[in-house]
Design a binder for these strands. Structure first.
Lengths: 335, 335
DNA sequence: CTGTTAGCGCCTTCAG
DNA sequence: CTGAAGGCGCTAACAG
């Protein structure tokens, strides 16, 4: 395991010079020296020690990726999370940063990571609650929050126009002849995203004097736990003819539930999703959904973060990404 | 940002003592001192600098998770990868290690990570080729390979009994009355896993004097690219009545393809998957598949690795996990 | 263009 | 049970 000092000695130069060529400061070194040192580095198979580097610079190339969840929950079981985090990782590497991934709802742990590793920045995902007010580290490192509606001062935000998404769904269902529609959230209580989508949905329907009664909004996708309530609703002659789900993942499970009670989608009941995950285009039926561009969201998040890392006195940014309708098979035209 | 030295001064003790209480070496410190120091640490919000720690110890708490892929490919788009890596992360954290994730097919980069960060161990996923022979770092750090059939000396392996999986599929299809079956791989050329599953599949069928002709094995799941060949096959009166896919993900796409050409599954054609991902139980039709236990695989991989980190002169282990049949809806009984 | 000199924050003998 | 001292590998002024 060669060290910088050793290759300096071998080259007959100082460590400072070697450090310069390693870090691409070629203007401070003669061409020949650069070439010679690079040759030595290659030949010795020298790899800089990142810990030493971080220590000396008081900053690492790590970016914390924090996903709010129980630490022993595999959040990648949710395809949206997996897709998004995967896209973040790809974009981070392109910019020369390492992801430091943490699934947790313990902000003490988050702070340990951030401070302990001297991370260069942090990416928070999910609708965080006010726990965050106590996250002192945030004052010192650049960070961007995705899909968070809790307004922290001085922090960057990247999110969707969730209300517009809800409106798109409401409008579309209305246009397709539906007059009675229900809503299924991922976790209504904790998720501002769910709340906004519901607001938009009710808003669009409201313009046609239609309402979504509270008994028709399902706060979570645990259909088994709500089986009785759901089947009662489904059995009623003036029950909903369509369900708008806050995620494709939910829609898929809803469709499965419908099947289990002998109902067909979209034959008997229409279902709309949100996200437009890849799976939405191969499911049976293919999902009509409100699409977001997950890759773009990841790209924007990383770009914004890196920009703020490189220039610490940039002003906080808030970017709202648009969403759009993708019409497929899971919604039937009525009447 | 308090440092160890500062809290030592505040406590009126040496840095060595503080270091001991931080690392739980309580036997070398009096109870009162421990309590006092812990109080100071809490109050100062002191977080140890991990870079300094790694530097001094010449080892970090990182475990490299390497997935062979192009660096700008989001591998979590594949639900199997996402699920497995997510499970690894969860298990790693339980043991007090950090995941250092890298998607790449450039083993120079892998070596940079491993050496640069002084990782404590490495987890390799996928059927690696002989590139690995040149990975000198492997000689020095504990590692485990999952689903790899390339036998490196002195390295741990965790994988499935893929041949048995193929046999289970072949037997089942035969039992269900199928006499002509095809096979779809993820990436036959590069994947030993695919090859083994095919071997097992052919083996089981061969016992009944049935063969799977080469024209019936599809080396990848890019159905669009092979549309003509596939439809010709499907249109033929003595074409296959069933397809065994090397992954649930493939099966889902195949089913979609079948639909696009007006064929129903399992009405016209039966389809079997492999993996038993969560999605397999809510798809339409629900997938009959060869199940593996992904959580168990992750747990065993992490346990094995940690054991070898803690005791460097353990002997290499090779663990083969069993697979089993999960019967659902996508295979029809014939005749 | 290149060398010297201090640290960065922590761990780890070795004494006491 | 505690302290002193050296060093892990690299960077960053500041000289030259």
């Amino acid at each position: 395991m060669a060290t910088l000092k050793e290759i300096a000695r071998a080259a007959g130069v100082s460590t400072a010079t070697v450090s310069n060529v390693i870090n691409g400061n070629y203007k401070r070194v003669s061409e020949e020296t650069v070439a010679q040192i690079q040759a030595l580095i290659r030949q010795a198979g020298y790899v800089p020690n990142q810990a030493a580097r971080s220590l000396a610079q008081r900053e690492s190339r790590f970016i914390a990726i924090i996903v709010q969840a129980s630490p022993d929950e595999n959040i990648f079981l949710n395809p949206y999370n997996a897709t998004y985090v995967g896209a973040l990782i790809v974009n981070l590497y392109k910019k020369g940063y390492y992801p430091l991934i943490r699934f947790t709802d313990d902000f003490g742990a988050v702070e340990q990571d951030i401070r302990g590793w001297n991370v260069a920045g942090a990416l928070f995902n999910g609708s965080y609650s006010r726990y965050l007010e106590n996250l002192e580290s945030l004052a010192f490192i650049p960070s961007v929050f995705t899909d968070c509606y809790f307004d922290l001062p001085g922090v960057n935000h990247v999110r969707l126009d969730d209300e517009a998404g809800g409106r798109i769904a409401g409008d579309y269902l209305y246009r397709m002849g539906h007059r009675r529609a229900a809503f299924v959230a991922m976790a209504l209580e904790d998720s501002d995203v769910d709340k906004r989508r519901l607001v938009g949905f009710r808003d669009a329907l409201g313009r046609h004097d239609l309402t979504v009664p509270d008994q028709w909004v399902f706060p979570s996708a645990d259909f088994e736990a709500q089986r009785e309530r759901l089947t009662a609703l489904l059995g009623s002659p003036d029950g909903p003819t369509a369900f708008f789900c806050s995620a494709d993942q939910i829609a898929l499970h809803l469709i499965d539930f419908m099947r289990s009670v002998g109902l067909s989608v979209p034959g008997d009941i229409s279902v709309m999703g949100f996200d437009n995950l890849p799976i939405a285009s191969v499911s049976v039926p293919k999902l009509t959904t409100v699409a977001q561009d997950i890759d773009q969201k990841a790209l924007v998040s990383v770009d914004t973060l890196v920009r703020h890392i490189q220039n610490k006195d940039l002003t906080p940014e808030k970017v709202i990404l648009g969403v759009s309708l993708v019409e497929r098979e899971s919604v039937r035209r009525l009447g």
